[in-house]
C-alpha cells in the first residue's frame, strides 16, 4: 500500500514538472507580456491541485475501508461505518497542507467501541500518509450519544499517543488495522 502511494506521489511530481516545462516554453515563446503566462500557470496549478485532492481522497478511503470492526467479522466498509463521501480533503494551499476530514457512523448510538474505531482510523491513516496531511476524525452528527466527548478524545494527539502505549489497547488496534495477506 505504501509503495502504491509513493509511486502515485512520484507520478504527480513528474506531472508537475512537465507542466512547469510546458508553461515555461509557452511563456518564452509568448513575448506579448507575462500576465497571460502567469494566469495560465495559476489555472494549471488549480487543476493539478484538484486532481491531487481527489487522488488523496481515494487513497484515504482505500486505507480505511479495510479496517476490521473490533467485534464483528466484517470491515468498516461492509458495516457502512465508513463511506466514500465521508472523506473530505481540504487544500490549505498557502501552508502547503491538506486537511483530511473523516466522518464515521457507529452502528448503534451508544456503541462503546466508537473510540476504538476512531483510534484505529487515525493510526492506520497516519502510518500510511504522514507529511503535509492533517487529520480530523468525527462521528457523523447525531449518530452517538457522547459524540462531542469522543470527537475531542480521538483528535487529541497526546491522548492518542498515550493510548497506543497501553499494551492491551494497542493489541486491539493492531488487530483492527492489520491488512489481510
Amino acid at each position: 500500500m505504501i509503495l502504491t502511494i509513493s509511486s502515485l506521489l512520484m507520478m504527480f511530481a513528474n506531472l508537475m514538472q512537465q507542466t512547469k516545462k510546458i508553461i515555461q516554453e509557452k511563456y518564452l515563446k509568448n513575448d506579448s507580456g507575462n500576465t497571460t503566462a502567469t494566469m495560465i500557470e495559476i489555472d494549471t496549478t488549480d487543476e493539478q491541485l484538484e486532481e491531487k485532492t481527489q487522488e488523496l481522497k481515494d487513497q484515504i478511503f482505500d486505507i480505511i475501508r479495510t479496517i476490521k470492526d473490533p467485534e464483528k467479522p466484517a470491515t468498516l466498509e461492509d458495516l457502512n461505518v465508513v463511506y466514500e463521501n465521508g472523506v473530505e480533503v481540504i487544500n490549505q494551499r498557502s501552508l502547503k497542507l491538506y486537511t483530511v476530514r473523516i466522518e464515521f457512523n457507529p452502528t448503534v448510538p451508544h456503541c462503546s467501541l466508537a473510540t476504538l474505531i476512531g483510534l484505529s482510523i487515525r493510526i492506520k491513516v497516519i502510518r500510511s500518509i504522514l507529511e503535509n496531511v492533517k487529520l480530523d476524525i468525527y462521528i457523523k452528527e447525531g449518530a452517538h450519544t457522547t459524540e462531542e466527548e469522543i470527537n475531542k478524545q480521538i483528535n487529541d494527539k497526546e491522548r492518542v499517543a498515550a493510548a497506543m502505549e497501553n499494551p492491551s489497547l494497542r493489541d486491539v488496534v493492531e488487530k483492527c488495522i492489520k491488512e489481510e495477506e
Binding site: 502547503k96 504522514l130 503535509n132
Partner: peptide, 8 residues
C-alpha cells in the same frame, strides 16, 4: 515560518 518542521 511556514513548514518550520515537516509535521506538528
Amino acid at each position: 515560518v511556514n513548514e518550520a518542521h515537516l509535521q506538528d
